[in-house]
Simulated assay, not measured.
Amino acid sequence: MAPTSVEAQFVTFSLDAEIFAVPVGVVREILDYEDPSRIPHGPPHLLGLRDVRGQGVPIIDLRVRLGMDKTVRTAHTRILVLDIPIADKMLALGLVADKVFEVTPFRHDAIETAPDIGAAWNCDYIRGVVRRPSDFVIIIDLARLFSDSAPAITAAAAPQRAVA
């Protein structure tokens, strides 16, 4: 008898018609949407700050960060409060999701790499893709997406060049 594959738990959510997932271990809590306090001159994806149990947490419009249209608030809009380990620090962020679905297990051997489409495409933020009977789930590499060295994802962000 072959050993069973190890599974990992993920929280699934939608942005527009796309389904995304993040590891359940980084999700601190899921909150109803409330408008954050604005931060002047922040990047377009930074909506502002929200108080989460006494801590000011930056709220990110993940749709904008991924180059999609701005989130339109509905009754299903939620904020996933995450603690993302990046290098030697813990980054607390709130990600706006159109809808949060469930915690679901994915077998490690069912997680495929991002597809190669034969063209220039920035898929650095994709940790993997899981095929389901009716759709695909994109697993986000949060540390890569939000690290200081993260490549520009939105069209509005200009590439930075090193100066010699």
Rank of each mutant, 00 (worst) to 15 (best):
P3C: 11
S5T: 14
E7R: 04
A8F: 13
Q9D: 14
Q9T: 11
S14M: 01
L15R: 03
L15T: 03
E18C: 02
I19R: 14
F20M: 00
V27K: 02
V27A: 05
L31I: 10
Y33L: 07
D35R: 11
P36M: 07
S37N: 12
S37V: 15
R38V: 14
R38P: 03
I39D: 10
I39G: 09
L47S: 11
D51R: 10
Q55C: 13
P58R: 00
G67H: 07
M68W: 06
M68Q: 12
M68D: 01
K70Q: 14
T71A: 09
V72M: 10
V72A: 09
R73I: 15
T74N: 05
L93E: 08
L93M: 09
L93H: 05
G94R: 06
G94P: 08
L95A: 07
D98Q: 04
V100L: 05
F101A: 08
R107S: 13
A110E: 14
I111W: 00
T113F: 01
G118M: 08
N122D: 13
D124E: 15
Y125G: 03
R127L: 07
R132S: 07
P133Q: 03
F136Y: 14
I138N: 08
I140H: 05
A143M: 08
A143V: 07
R144K: 13
L145E: 01
L145F: 01
A155H: 08
A157L: 08
A158I: 12
R161P: 00
A162G: 15
